[in-house]
């Protein structure tokens, strides 16, 4: 019980410190912007540890963070192999193929207005559907290995990127297009020098949405069958063995992979669309 009381005291102390930081004079500095959420997260983790130990919650219901940390460090090679199987082979290859396919179709749709008017509502509609349900079909077609996971990812990321790219390609002002016409620019020149650069913020929006979808697709597809390897496989089998510290370690790995993937795309976006108002100043 002492530990639980201590956890609550710690919570109050952390919150008080955050209140002081957030309402103090230094609140708008970068350090405070980083320190406050970090402190919040840290307090939560320490509370979790103390309460789980204090109430003696069994490890098959909720393992303490330290046990998850040990599982993560101790089984690093297993987690790394799962990561390569699910993320590099499944999610990343599917993401690249899906993005390129969506991009190609978007340029086609942009060229032919009829196609655009037909494809855009259909694409918007498809983007809201539970596409992850195609996983059993694609696993049946492409086998248990990473190819089927990549196929699920292709289908999942295709529509968000398509819809965003088409919207982006339409986002030039009549004045800008007229300017290109007065320069005597051809269709290709206009596309490469004006419309694709103007579409980049939209394209990156689609790419960023799709990073999470890619991981979700790759992990859920493994619930329908996989080689004895992969994050989704490990999660579902470790749950069956009640090895919850391993499950949490895989979830931490998936979370880190997802955030890093998103972060990398966001950094590239910042580099490529430095001229956009949201990145200036």
């Amino acid at each position: 019980m002492m530990l639980v009381v201590f956890a609550l005291v710690l919570w109050a102390a952390g919150w008080a410190l955050n209140v002081r930081l957030a309402s103090g004079p230094a609140a708008d500095t970068g350090t405070a912007q980083l320190a406050v959420p970090a402190l919040f997260g840290l307090t939560l983790i320490v509370m979790w540890e103390l309460i789980v130990r204090g109430l003696e919650v069994p490890g098959v219901i909720l393992p303490p963070p330290s046990a998850i940390g040990f599982a993560f460090a101790g089984q690093w090679d297993v987690i790394w192999a799962d990561f390569v199987q699910t993320f590099v082979k499944g999610a990343l290859s599917g993401y690249v193929i899906g993005a390129l396919a969506a991009f190609a179709v978007a340029i086609l749709a942009d060229r032919f207005d009829f196609l655009k008017r037909g494809l855009l509502p259909v694409g918007n509609f498809m983007a809201a559907l539970p596409i992850v349900g195609t996983a059993p079909i694609l696993v049946m077609w492409f086998g248990f290995d990473w190819q089927s996971k990549a196929a699920v990812v292709v289908v999942m990321v295709f529509f968000p990127i398509l819809v965003n790219t088409v919207a982006g390609l339409a986002d030039t002002a009549a004045m800008q297009r007229d300017l290109m016409r007065t320069y005597g620019a051809s269709y290709t020149q206009t596309l490469l020098k004006l419309r694709i650069p103007a579409a980049l913020p939209f394209i990156f929006n689609g790419l960023k949405i799709s990073t999470t979808l890619a991981l979700i697709g790759a992990i859920v597809a493994e619930f329908f069958g996989s080689p004895t390897l992969g994050m989704g496989f490990r999660i579902s089998t470790s749950v069956g063995q009640l090895a919850l510290d391993m499950v949490w370690a895989e979830i931490v790995a998936a979370a880190l992979a997802g955030s890093a993937f998103y972060g990398i795309i966001a950094v590239i976006e910042k580099r490529v669309t430095f001229w956009h108002p949201s990145h200036r100043g």
């Binding site: 909720l62 859920v220 499950v247």
Partner: peptide
């Protein structure tokens, strides 16, 4: 939002089942 939260689903099911 950048995390594949769905990975937690099997665990929630099993843990709630066990209690």
């Amino acid at each position: 939002q950048t995390i594949p939260i769905i990975a937690i689903a099997p665990m929630i099911i099993v843990v709630l089942y066990s209690i």
